[in-house]
Design a protein around this nucleic acid. Sequence first.
DNA 1: CGTGCGACTGAGACTTTGTCTCAGGGGTTC
DNA 2: GAACCCCTGAGACAAAGTCTCAGTCGCACG
Lengths: 150, 150
Amino acid sequence: MDRQTKQRRIETYRRRCREGGLPLTEQRMAVLEAMLDLDDHPTADRVHDVVARRDSRVSRATVYRALESLARIGVITKACHPGKAVRYDSRTETHHHLVCLRCDAIIDVTDDRLDALPVPDTSSYGFVVSDLRVQLRGVCRRCRELEETS
Amino acid sequence: MDRQTKQRRIETYRRRCREGGLPLTEQRMAVLEAMLDLDDHPTADRVHDVVARRDSRVSRATVYRALESLARIGVITKACHPGKAVRYDSRTETHHHLVCLRCDAIIDVTDDRLDALPVPDTSSYGFVVSDLRVQLRGVCRRCRELEETS
DNA sequence: CGTGCGACTGAGACTTTGTCTCAGGGGTTC
DNA sequence: GAACCCCTGAGACAAAGTCTCAGTCGCACG
Ligand SMILES: [Zn+2]
Ligand SMILES: [Zn+2]
Ligand SMILES: [Zn+2]
Ligand SMILES: [Zn+2]
């Protein structure tokens, strides 16, 4: 992610904190910066590794709490995955995911037709939809290559 | 799920076991029956509760293993969810999900337009797609009602 | 700048979720 | 029925996430 985009995202975060009356702490800023630097879809523990490498005093609980609060105010999102750990996503605009069923990689994909997909009417379920995501499950390039050579 | 459908699903399971050379045990049959009776999208522990109520000697590890093996041979599927526990799905045909971000409910939804969605070309990513799922995130009826009254 | 409130933090205990080990049991085939 | 091999139960273990609580720090206010 380029420097300018990163700066803009951090400004958004500052603004949302002010609006929500949330104190803006050094630790949460470090977590957000780590998320913006990592542009894959890391687990909380992986984010903690990165943050701790820069400042070893940031605790695991704080990283977990910070990621939840960042997701709650919409500065980051949670990605879905049929595995065990929650995956966080620094991209907040609508996009879709390739999910590798072998290695658990999550790869961003943009496709005009997917983006143009209208949200269906779910009022009969009493359900209010805020977000539509398409998930393409399959096998990534690296996993296929590994399989062929074996 | 009606009796006839359930019987057909169990027959499919028997056949896949024979084809795959897997012994068909009482415990795995109990896990499959529990999945077919629960038509929400239960966690492994919830399936274990149901199975254990019928036969308290079935161990937790067996239920976890059985669910994985049922998913591997395609008799059930795994649903994606931005939460911590894996959710299993007794429906194997393509369908889509409403996911409540408040209570973690997963509700099946069928929509012709979603079903007709073509799988986009992902060859530039080197990715082979086996399955396309749409996820509609939002808030379910019950959670909205709870919120209004509070 | 100093003060005070309230939310945040660190450390680690605890809970939940999932996996592994290994001796013993049971399905399948012949 | 016998042999083979996978499956199972019980519990230890591991991984992922939450909670508690005393102490700290951001920030609004004066
Ligand atoms: Zn892969
Ligand atoms: Zn993404
Ligand atoms: Zn709900
Ligand atoms: Zn479903």
